[in-house]
């Protein structure tokens, strides 16, 4: 996978247009859990792909705190995020966005799930996965006409997350340039 040569490159070439298009895709996949779209325009350092980079550029700035989980917490990625977004990097329990491979995110301690009065004060996960397909766990809930399927990295964690609704976290799954999402409102069925 090609990666940013250094922290000053790999950003959006045309920020208003690129961000608008990336947001529409991000919004669509979050509104339609299970749907997969392709993002473009960002080239972050490995191990992140185009889609994760585009989400960061579209959603993060000096007003949002970002946690780099596990193996993602590396100098080139810190520099890239710092230069392109200005987002402060923080511990897991203060993060508005947490990004990393799924096992690292899962191990992060104290990610915020919002409060009863402000369920929006929760952390959004961006998980870079080795594979992403519209297959696997069966999903129902808001945004899904009948049943959708998505290759979640696991089911138990997300079932527990959904059980706390309206608290909980929303997750974007990225794989290279592809992105899907799972909001906290989705019910995940066993043996999908």
């Amino acid at each position: 996978m090609p990666s940013a040569a250094h922290s000053f490159t790999g950003g959006f070439a045309d920020a208003p247009r690129d961000a608008a298009e990336a947001f529409r895709s991000a919004m669509t996949v979050l509104a339609r859990p299970g749907e997969i779209r392709t993002l473009h325009g960002a080239l972050p350092p490995a191990p992140l792909g185009v889609a994760a980079g585009a989400l960061l550029l579209t959603l993060c700035d000096a007003d949002t705190s970002v946690h780099l989980a596990g193996a993602c917490d590396r100098p080139d990625l810190r520099d890239w995020i710092g230069f392109h977004t200005g987002a402060p990097l923080v511990a897991a329990d203060q993060a508005d966005f947490a990004i990393g491979a799924w096992p690292d995110l899962r191990a992060a301690q104290g990610l915020r799930i919002g409060t009863a009065e402000y369920p929006d004060r929760s952390c959004t996960l961006i998980a870079e996965l080795p594979a992403l397909d519209a297959a696997g766990a069966a999903l129902t809930g808001p945004g899904i006409r009948d049943t959708a399927h998505l290759s979640l990295p696991e089911t138990a964690w997300f079932q527990a997350n959904a059980a706390r609704f309206p608290l909980g976290m929303d997750a974007f799954f990225t794989c290279g340039a592809r992105v899907a999402a799972l909001p906290r409102s989705t019910t995940i069925h066993n043996g999908g």
Partner: peptide, 21 residues
């Protein structure tokens, strides 16, 4: 401006994740 749009976009995503909130 782009910063304002990002702020609004983040709110839209939260809204979609918690329908009606």
């Amino acid at each position: 401006d782009e910063q304002t749009k990002r702020m609004i976009r983040r709110a839209i995503l939260k809204g979609l994740a918690v329908p009606g909130y």
